[in-house]
Simulated assay, not measured.
Amino acid sequence: MNDLLQHYEIAKKNANKYMRKGQLNAYVDALIEMNHYKKLMKAVIAN
């Protein structure tokens, strides 16, 4: 669970960085990555 949370936080920081730089494609990719890790965390919590 801690690994998933760390990956989520890294993706969140990257998303903020890309948004500030105006790199929209990288920003959207980072948001998709965040969503992926969020789903995995919910699955771990549910089990």
Score class of each variant (00 low, 15 high):
1 M>Y: 04
2 N>I: 10
2 N>A: 10
2 N>P: 01
2 N>E: 12
2 N>S: 05
2 N>H: 00
3 D>N: 02
3 D>W: 05
3 D>C: 04
3 D>I: 05
3 D>M: 01
3 D>R: 01
4 L>I: 13
5 L>H: 05
5 L>E: 12
5 L>I: 14
7 H>E: 11
8 Y>C: 03
8 Y>Q: 10
8 Y>V: 03
10 I>R: 04
11 A>E: 02
11 A>S: 13
11 A>T: 04
11 A>L: 07
12 K>Y: 09
12 K>N: 08
12 K>V: 09
12 K>H: 07
12 K>E: 08
13 K>C: 11
13 K>A: 07
13 K>M: 00
14 N>F: 05
15 A>D: 08
15 A>G: 10
15 A>C: 01
15 A>M: 10
15 A>N: 08
15 A>Q: 09
15 A>P: 07
16 N>T: 05
16 N>C: 09
17 K>G: 00
17 K>Y: 06
18 Y>G: 10
18 Y>W: 15
19 M>K: 12
19 M>N: 06
19 M>I: 15
20 R>Q: 15
20 R>F: 04
21 K>Q: 15
21 K>P: 00
22 G>Y: 09
22 G>T: 10
23 Q>S: 12
23 Q>R: 13
24 L>H: 11
24 L>A: 10
25 N>G: 00
25 N>W: 07
25 N>V: 12
25 N>I: 12
26 A>S: 13
26 A>E: 15
27 Y>L: 14
27 Y>M: 13
27 Y>F: 15
27 Y>P: 10
28 V>H: 10
28 V>A: 11
28 V>R: 14
28 V>S: 08
29 D>G: 00
29 D>P: 00
29 D>E: 15
30 A>L: 02
30 A>F: 00
30 A>Y: 06
31 L>P: 10
31 L>Y: 03
32 I>V: 05
32 I>T: 14
33 E>G: 03
33 E>Q: 02
33 E>R: 06
34 M>N: 03
34 M>F: 11
34 M>A: 02
34 M>G: 04
34 M>E: 09
35 N>V: 02
35 N>A: 11
35 N>T: 08
35 N>H: 03
35 N>M: 04
36 H>T: 06
36 H>D: 02
36 H>Y: 11
37 Y>F: 05
37 Y>S: 13
37 Y>A: 02
37 Y>G: 04
37 Y>R: 09
38 K>T: 04
39 K>M: 07
39 K>T: 12
39 K>F: 05
39 K>S: 11
39 K>P: 04
39 K>H: 00
39 K>N: 07
40 L>D: 05
40 L>F: 00
40 L>P: 06
40 L>G: 09
41 M>D: 08
41 M>P: 01
42 K>R: 14
42 K>Y: 10
43 A>E: 15
43 A>N: 14
44 V>A: 02
44 V>P: 00
44 V>C: 06
45 I>C: 01
45 I>D: 13
45 I>M: 05
46 A>I: 03
46 A>C: 06
47 N>W: 01
47 N>Q: 12
